[in-house]
Design a protein around this nucleic acid. Structure first.
Ligand code: FES
Ligand code: FES
Lengths: 146, 146
DNA sequence: TATAATGATACCATATCTGTATCATTTGTC
DNA sequence: GACAAATGATACAGATATGGTATCATTATA
């Protein structure tokens, strides 16, 4: 059971990179060479972040992506919802048949409570929380177009 | 994001059915006709529960499955671990590269705390909690062997 | 106009989930 | 013993989700 999938992870890394440096506009090429992310996959992810209004983009030479929202207003749970769909831990498969309580089910209540807790906790984590100190990096990769 | 997969769900239903009635031994055929579960899938699940020591089985005419553990000692989290693998919400994909804190990361701490909370809550839910009142059921199905 | 960038979109490979199908083995009944 | 009713073991298959590729169009700059 993974809570965070790879595209969410890559999105976080990319956002951290964009918002960390003094750079204003960052190309996907630069991020590919600095982070460990395959180029086409990164591009797809960045396009999603752009459509969602988290990043702005400029085409052409010298273009790239820039933050259009400050890092303390980007929440982990939002990224998860973007890349992993609406956050519903379970839809109570049981209620159809097996659960004798149904309308007033203590199990369902408990599970709903767990879900609410998880969401509220995830809502307290922001990209800004990942920017407090400097990071590290690793080697380069060959640079194939697209 | 599903917290509970279908085989876990079926396992719960089957366990409830077995432990609810006065019957001691219940055949898979009976459960197929009473619950909404495809026969071969149910059989596979029951065999797993048997191997895990939650159910006992007897072969031959009049055989079937019976509980070998009382319902207040079967926890939801255990069934989830059986059918969905070890329970680890995340393995912190970020630490490799993006996270600047690493050894003393507040994000990691938060996520670990969430995970621990979820597990502890799930550990408080038992099959016995689903047996307090009577359930309902629905129609029959044709009865193909295996 | 050539080039460096993103936009849009279709495709593909792999893993996981949700089952199916088959045959062997055990046990009770006649 | 023969037959039937059950489980044991195991291999296979279809659907969906995940992770990643590939291609071409569009825009902007020099
Ligand atoms: S277990 Fe879902 S309604 Fe009770
Ligand atoms: S985010 Fe995983 S170590 Fe900080």
């Amino acid at each position: 059971m993974k809570l965070i999938t790879r595209d969410t992870d890559y999105a976080i890394r990319a956002l951290c990179y964009i918002m960390k440096g003094g750079h204003k506009v960052v190309s996907s090429a630069e991020m590919v060479s600095k982070l460990h992310i395959p180029r086409p996959f990164l591009r797809k992810i960045l396009q999603v972040l752009n459509k969602k209004g988290i990043l702005g983009s400029t085409k052409g030479l010298g273009g790239g992506f820039e933050a259009s929202v400050p890092p303390d207003r980007i929440f982990l749970v939002d990224l998860m919802e973007i890349f992993q769909g609406p956050f519903s831990l379970n839809e109570c498969l049981l209620r159809n048949l097996a659960c004798p309580h149904k309308k007033n089910c203590s199990l369902k209540k408990k599970i709903d409570a767990i879900e609410q807790y998880v969401i509220s906790q995830l809502r307290s984590i922001r990209i800004a929380d990942l920017l407090k100190k400097r990071g590290s990096r690793r080697g380069k990769k060959k640079n194939n177009q697209n």
